[in-house]
C-alpha cells in the first residue's frame, strides 16, 4: 500500500492543523488552545472508542448516545439519594455495560440486525432516562471529589485528556492483545469462518456490545462531572459524531479495519475542525457541513487509493 493511502488520515489531520494555524496563528496555534482541543475531543473519543468494539465486530450500536445521557441522569439521581462516589460510578458503569450486553445477547442469539435492535434499545434507554429525570436537568448534590474527575489539570494536562488517553490504551490493549479482541475481530472479518474454528459468537458479541456501552457510560459520568449537572438528552449528540470518528479512523493505519488509535485520530480531526472553525467565527451549521464533507472525502480518498494498489 502506498504511503499516502496508509497515512492519509494522519496527513489530513496535520494538513487541517496547518491550515488553521496559517489562518489564525495567534488564536488557533497557541499552545493553550491545542491543549484545549485535546480536552474538547476527550468525551467524543471515549464514546467513539466504545463504538470501535462493535465496529470491529462489523456491527453497529446506535444506543451509545442514549447511554451517555442515561449515565449522567442515573449518577446524579444516586448522588441525590446520598450514595458515595465509588458505588455511584460502579452502578452506573454496570448499568451501561448491561445495556450493550442485552443488545449483544439478542443480536447474536437470534441473528437480529444490530442496527434495529440497538436503535430500539437506545429508544428504550432514552425513555427510562426521561422517566427517572422527569425530563428535567438534574443538579443534585454532586460531590466535589466526583467533579474533579472531569475538570482541572494533572501535571499541566487536562484530566479529561488523560481519561481519553487511558481509554485509548485500554481499547487498543483489548483489541490487539487479548483473546477477546482477536476473536471479536475474527467474527467481524468472517463470522462463519470464526464460528467454524470454534469462536463462540454469543459471548464475544455480548462483550463487544457491553464494552461499547460501558465506554459510553464512562463518557456520561465524565460529562456530568465536568458540567456538574445532567440533562436527559445531554449525550445524544455523541452518536453520529462517534461513528464519524470511527469511520475516519478506519481509513487510517490499517486495512480498513476499525482500530483504537485510528478512532482517536478521527475524534481529533472532528475536534480540530470544530475548534478551528469556531475560532474563525464560522457558524455551527457550516461546521457540520465541513465535518460531513471531510468524512466523505476521507473514505473517497481511501477507496481510490486502495484501488490503485
Amino acid at each position: 500500500m502506498s504511503f499516502s493511502a496508509r497515512y492519509g488520515t494522519l496527513i489530513g489531520l496535520l494538513a487541517i492543523i496547518a491550515l488553521f494555524a496559517a489562518l489564525s496563528p495567534e488564536a488557533f496555534a497557541k499552545g493553550s488552545n491545542l491543549i484545549n482541543i485535546t480536552q474538547q475531543m476527550s468525551l467524543l473519543a471515549i464514546v467513539a472508542l466504545g463504538a470501535t468494539f462493535v465496529m470491529s465486530l462489523s456491527e453497529f450500536d446506535l444506543s451509545v448516545g442514549a447511554v451517555v445521557s442515561m449515565a449522567g441522569i442515573v449518577s446524579v439521581t444516586l448522588f441525590g439519594a446520598g450514595w458515595g462516589i465509588v458505588p455511584v460510578m460502579l452502578v452506573t458503569l454496570i448499568a451501561g455495560f448491561a445495556v450493550g450486553a442485552v443488545s449483544g445477547l439478542a443480536i447474536a442469539t437470534y441473528r437480529m440486525p444490530s442496527f434495529i435492535v440497538t436503535l430500539a434499545m437506545g429508544t428504550i434507554v432514552g425513555g427510562i432516562t426521561y422517566w427517572i429525570s422527569d425530563g428535567a436537568t438534574l443538579f443534585g448534590n454532586i460531590p466535589v471529589g466526583f467533579r474533579d474527575l472531569g475538570r482541572g489539570y494533572l501535571a499541566g494536562i487536562p484530566v479529561l485528556t488523560l481519561w481519553a488517553l487511558a481509554a485509548t490504551l485500554f481499547a487498543a490493549f483489548i483489541l490487539d492483545h487479548t483473546e477477546l479482541g482477536r476473536r471479536i475481530l475474527a467474527i467481524g472479518g468472517n463470522r462463519e469462518a470464526a464460528r467454524l474454528t470454534g469462536v463462540r459468537i454469543v459471548p464475544n458479541s455480548v462483550w463487544a456490545f457491553g464494552l461499547c456501552t460501558l465506554f459510553a457510560a464512562l463518557a456520561g459520568l465524565l460529562l456530568t462531572a465536568r458540567l456538574g449537572s445532567a440533562h436527559p438528552t445531554g449525550g445524544n449528540g455523541f452518536l453520529l459524531q462517534a461513528y464519524a470518528a470511527v469511520f475516519l479512523g478506519m481509513t487510517a493505519f490499517r486495512d480498513g479495519q476499525a482500530n483504537a488509535l485510528g478512532t482517536l485520530l478521527g475524534a481529533a480531526i472532528i475536534a480540530v475542525v470544530a475548534n478551528g472553525l469556531t475560532i474563525l467565527g464560522v457558524p455551527n451549521y457550516l461546521q457540520d457541513i465541513f465535518t460531513g464533507l471531510i468524512i466523505i472525502g476521507a473514505v473517497l480518498v481511501r477507496n481510490i487509493g486502495g484501488r490503485a494498489t
Binding site: L185, A186, G189, A193, T197, V199
Partner: peptide
C-alpha cells in the same frame, strides 16, 4: 472446511491472525 474463501479463512486478515485463531 471445504470453502476456504468464504467459510475457512478471514481473507483480509493476516497470516498470523488466521494461523492463531483456533487456539489463541
Amino acid at each position: 472446511c471445504e470453502d476456504r474463501r468464504n467459510t475457512g479463512l478471514v481473507m483480509h486478515h493476516s497470516i498470523l491472525d488466521n494461523a492463531v485463531l483456533p487456539h489463541l
